[in-house]
Amino acid sequence: MSWKHVCNIDQIPENTLKQFEIDGISIVIANYGDGFRAFPPYCPHMEEPLAGTGLIEDGVLTCSKHLWQWNMGSCEKLGMAEKELLIYELKCDDDKILVNMEKELIYQYDEADDDDDDFFD
């Protein structure tokens, strides 16, 4: 286990997200009112930076680009979301937020790999 001190509770006001760099790994911490969540900084859909354009309200995280949503309490996907969020283990120690960052969580984005360079032949 590799628990890292990412930030303190008072750095993340309710219903906000903030991005941190810890040992070269980018991570977002979200305060959804009933607790905190830690996940990779990009939407699993199309790499939208969630700390910039993600919204939290009533315990639901919404990526404002294509309106994918997740329940922050249960981490289940909602509405238009087609992929699960990858979630880091998180615990609070007094006012400290600690995240288990043993391994970076990375989404596999679809990339068309068909070689179409004989397109015109």
Partner: peptide, 8 residues
């Protein structure tokens, strides 16, 4: 990314 688009 841009306001109307995603990275890459």
């Amino acid at each position: 990314g841009q306001p109307s688009g995603n990275p890459k």
